[in-house]
Design a protein around this nucleic acid. Structure first.
Lengths: 206, 206
DNA sequence: TAGATTGTTAATCGATTAACAATC
DNA sequence: TAGATTGTTAATCGATTAACAATC
């Protein structure tokens, strides 16, 4: 177990899918699950599922499959979701507000705990228990709340600048919704998630 | 040119990135661009860019690179973005509303033209010039407005059912924001884009 | 012509899948 | 024990990258 190959991003992206599936099984009081059945339900190859899981440990029982609760706990641990993950969100436009509201209900231990905006008119506005802060306050708040993850929902032109500020404040992981390519140092993980680009790619399939 | 290999999804996803980059060059009055320079700016391998583009035609000029305007027009055509693409959005919660507002400004020929919600309280509400319709009206509206693309922003439990209704109405491409795996027939393209899952995967990198 | 850069082939890299010995 | 299913190796598939002849 626990080889020291760098684990491919594509594997990491599947882990939350497995986790969500397992949590559904828990609710249905199902105690064990085979890679075969998982594969059918998730439209994945069973060998791939076994291989993914075996990177992190021998979680299965031969002849029986995986214990649902145990595996779901393992995955939670691997992803680091066993403790709350505080997030800073920058950009309180429509999308920012929506994500903020959404997160108050949904959230599975990833929690938006600070809101920022560059526009004076937005500062001081309240969403639930959170008040929108100015960008000047970013470094202090990030430090105080030990925030390591940031979400960017500002216009494209402002995105890189905001990213730089987040990175300078010590943020290590960024989820960027602005339609702009963001550059960062190698030790910072940037994930782009841009609706416009996605829609344009999908247009191809029509 | 135009081989009859099925073009990989991963190539299609890069096309809008190229397109956006080229549009920025147009604005800066740059007339030609080499794959070398593109690669540097987009953090991609130049050979990959050339290979991607050559699937669709010989767009470049040897010794000179690509004509920016010409290439951007070609890509627009390939993606089918030269005509407006009407979209139906189902689920007027926070996220649905945000996407709807966002699309009114941003949009690059992908345009939300119909809104739906399963909740009676939402029906009749207006967003810009669009009024939220009931799910019963979906088939008729999709047909009338020749809609082929749908966006799902309903809660997870409702997602598959909504997808089925979209597909039955003739929708061919679905962008799903609900944290649920959606199944559809082979001739329907489903793209999942789930913030919760993305955040959970990113948590791993902390 | 000389320099630059394409389009494409071949080499490499990495991810998926099949197959099966190990074992519960 | 017999049946089921894992973990893992080897085979396959597919995508990325290097290299270079063709040519503007």
């Amino acid at each position: 177990m626990t080889k020291f190959h760098k684990i491919p991003d594509v594997v990491i992206k599947r882990l939350p899918v497995y986790l969500r599936y397992l949590q559904q099984l828990v609710e249905r009081d199902i105690e064990t699950i085979s890679s075969q059945q998982m594969g059918e339900d998730l439209n994945l190859n069973p060998a791939q599922i076994r291989k993914d899981l075996s990177i992190f440990g021998d979680f299965g029982v031969k002849g029986m499959g995986y214990r649902v609760i145990e595996l779901s706990e393992k995955l939670t641990g691997i992803l680091g979701l066993d403790k709350e993950i505080p997030i800073a969100l920058v950009g309180m436009g429509n999308l920012g507000v929506a994500l903020c509201q959404y997160n108050r209900y949904q959230s599975a231990n990833t929690r938006i705990v600070a809101l920022f905006d560059g526009h004076p008119s937005k500062i001081g506005e309240k969403f639930g228990s959170l008040e929108v802060k100015s960008m000047e306050e970013l470094p202090a708040v990030v430090k105080e709340k030990k925030i390591k993850m940031g979400i960017i929902t500002v216009p494209a032109q402002a995105a890189q600048n905001v990213a730089d500020q987040l990175i300078n404040s010590g943020i290590k992981v960024i989820l960027n919704f602005a339609p702009a390519l963001i550059q960062g140092p190698m030790d910072v993980k940037v994930q782009n998630s841009d609706v416009t680009t996605e829609l344009q790619a999908l247009a191809y399939y029509l």
